[in-house]
Design a protein around this nucleic acid. Structure first.
Lengths: 198, 198
DNA sequence: TTTAGAATATACCAATTGGTATATTTTTTA
DNA sequence: TAAAAAATATACCAATTGGTATATTCTAAA
């Protein structure tokens, strides 16, 4: 059971996360935070050392739930190559989902935190590395199950896929046009079929 | 000949542009601006209506010089398809160049301005539209010179290329690793050769 | 060289910034 | 249920925010 205090901490994170994600670190003020939560500065600073620590907590939380959502979606299949297709399938619905979060946390925080908070920025880098490793491992697994060509450079393709995905996310959000994401996912599916798949 | 005042306006734009580009709209304060220029608020507000107008001026200026640089680079050839290859060639050296500007203005401002200044954001959208149109026209020209297959959807490919490029820019800047840009440009070159080229 | 007009500096504004010390209230444990 | 402990609220801080009205300085033309 969560204590009252732990509930409050979690409540603050959940409430503030989309605000940080939308506005960025500097443009999110303490008064934005107190207004949204209905709590006072005393409560905020009782739960978090400072603004930066709260920003890290919100980013970590958002990313964690996002990655869980992908993993859950992937659990539809045990086949590595089908799990790859489930990644593109996930991102086909990503626009609506990311809008709920206030935008893509990796894209937004990656751009924003770079010159605002090196601590937050390190978390972004770490998250990207983790995602790439996951995709790379998936490709490796596909080789083992003889679904994917052995000569494929797993990490190279993992980076390629994520580069295309994050580009599509930026374009869709900036141009307010979901077709960028849909189109890119089609493109990636073709790539998987023609280059990776045996 | 530029009057003294016009020189000052231009000086402010050039000096402040990388600051806005790096830190974003909200995180760039008037004191940042006065400190960097050595001018006072009176001078700044004498040349610009407000902070937002200055931000627009800096974005417009940075983008303009960037687009000029691409166009100049492309002038090495008259062949549309070779001009396409000169685009990827340009972006192979983009990391160093964009670092001078304080990052990629389209990426940074696209993410930052979305929730800070709708006026600035509109300029980003307009710029992307313009770039896409340019690439699309280039593909059309390639059809006319019989270098590119007639069945190619010009705008579709223009969007694809720019989506991949902006994704690579984000990854290179966020992971501080130029290989994302180099790799993606190789990928695009292959795409041009195998899908577009006759 | 004087002078009008333009450009810049100065001094100020109320509001807000992130953060803290202390008072008060709420929760938990005994 | 009472006391200890934890969590939250209040009141405050100096510094900074974007912006403005006015004073001063500089520029350019006559």
């Amino acid at each position: 059971m969560l204590t009252k205090a732990e509930q409050t901490t979690e409540f603050i994170i959940q409430t503030v996360a989309p605000i940080f994600n939308k506005n960025g670190y500097s443009a999110t003020s303490l008064s934005d935070i107190t207004k949204a939560t209905g709590l006072t500065k005393g409560a905020i600073y009782g739960n978090f050392k400072n603004k930066e620590e709260l920003a890290i907590a919100t980013f970590t939380s958002t990313v964690k739930s996002m990655l869980k959502r992908i993993t859950d979606h992937q659990s539809q299949s045990n086949s590595p190559i089908r799990k790859l297709f489930l990644v593109t399938d996930f991102y086909r619905n990503y626009y609506d989902y990311s809008k709920e979060m206030g935008g893509c946390p990796i894209l937004n925080t990656g751009v924003d935190a770079k010159h605002q908070s090196s601590l937050v920025f390190q978390h972004v880098q770490h998250t990207i590395t983790k995602i790439q490793n996951n995709v790379s491992k998936l490709i490796d697994a596909g080789k083992q199950t003889e679904e994917i060509h052995l000569h494929i450079d797993s990490m190279l393709y993992a980076k390629r896929l994520y580069t295309m995905i994050i580009g599509a996310i930026f374009m869709t959000h900036t141009m307010n046009d979901n077709s960028y994401l849909l189109e890119t996912m089609d493109q990636i599916d073709v790539l998987i079929r023609t280059e990776l798949k045996i």
